[in-house]
Nucleic acid binder design. Sequence first.
DNA 1: GCGTGTGAACTGGTTCACAGCG
DNA 2: CGCTGTGAACCAGTTCACACGC
Lengths: 217, 217
Amino acid sequence: MKTKLPKAVIERLNLVYGLCDKLLEAGTTRISSREIGEALEIPAHTVRKDINFLGEIGDTGAGYEVSRLRTHLAVELGLDHARRACIVGLGRLGSALLEYDWDKTSDFEVVAGFDASINRLETIRSPISLFPAYEIPEVVRREQIELALLTVPRKAAKPAGKLLAEGGIRGIINFTSVSLGPLPERTAVRNLNLVNELRVLSSLVHLQEIENLERSN
Amino acid sequence: MKTKLPKAVIERLNLVYGLCDKLLEAGTTRISSREIGEALEIPAHTVRKDINFLGEIGDTGAGYEVSRLRTHLAVELGLDHARRACIVGLGRLGSALLEYDWDKTSDFEVVAGFDASINRLETIRSPISLFPAYEIPEVVRREQIELALLTVPRKAAKPAGKLLAEGGIRGIINFTSVSLGPLPERTAVRNLNLVNELRVLSSLVHLQEIENLERSN
DNA sequence: GCGTGTGAACTGGTTCACAGCG
DNA sequence: CGCTGTGAACCAGTTCACACGC
């Protein structure tokens, strides 16, 4: 089994997986690489290459059977069972994520929220259990939480990351603008910095402006 | 002027820009590529290459002067003036972003919010002006809004994208799980699919589990 | 003929290694 | 002597083109 998937491939395959969900909902049973590519804005040959990283699954000349493809991707990408997740930092963004309806996708289950402020914890009304931040290691371990969404203020990011690692967390999405620094090898981190995303978008707009200027010369 | 920056380079340079902000806040005036790399978890030679895409700016043997670097990046990346932005779709995530304190970074200014539900618009109390969705083209044009954060339900994504394009929007961050489909050439789009991010994180965890298993054989 | 699977060619981004300057 | 800047070497991922099965 290939364990050497390029990150870009992993990202695209997960998009394909998500597309399969939608297709099944809509009752579509077969789909070609070209159609997948159109829906996802990816070239068809890239779609085929990507899918083939995980072994043959398509029917020559007839595209892919959606449900088979979906199952296949789920197994290979580790989406075949719901993973338990928590949200660390219940400010605006954290609260929004806490209340998000993750159940629509059965791939995750948010089972806990943490915040440093006891005050805030008492204010929030949620069906999900909330705990003070210092209990992170204990709760993460006890509740077998694998994933964390980190939405704390930047000062609190590194300490929170450390507490999560102590509890044996396996993956963190870091919404913070600081990197978490050295964590145990086994911990996967994805940085998702909203301010940076917005800046990158500005840059893209800016570079395009320049290009347009030059083209008109 | 180089207009051919690889996307990965643009992303990293924006991180460097953000780092400069923090450094100035902290009173740091000089920094080497190695130190930048450590803070951002990027190899030092990559940092140097990236910065050099935009021309020489460092002092041989003595690193970079932070404020000069910051200004340089701002000019080249188009971050030298605040861009006007709006939020489309005021559900949980949209509202959270609406109330986010963007002013901390002077790079953006959220000047409008939109939602299809008049009801919801009347409920939300915000210093930022709110409008019904059908007014998007008019308001975007009138208010000279360049950027949009799209946080609508997936059914509403494509139509909303179209309205934004009509108003002459320049860039969209699409938080939706669907691609916006063909938009005018000049519109930059960045897809930021939270569910997919979480899935990718699961995949990374999964692939690592496999690797660990194999290593123990 | 259509559409998958895949080796081979290509592209471009990353890494290396060192020259050059303060 | 430290650290930048950069051409050259390297490598990874993408694209191409076509063989093969339905």
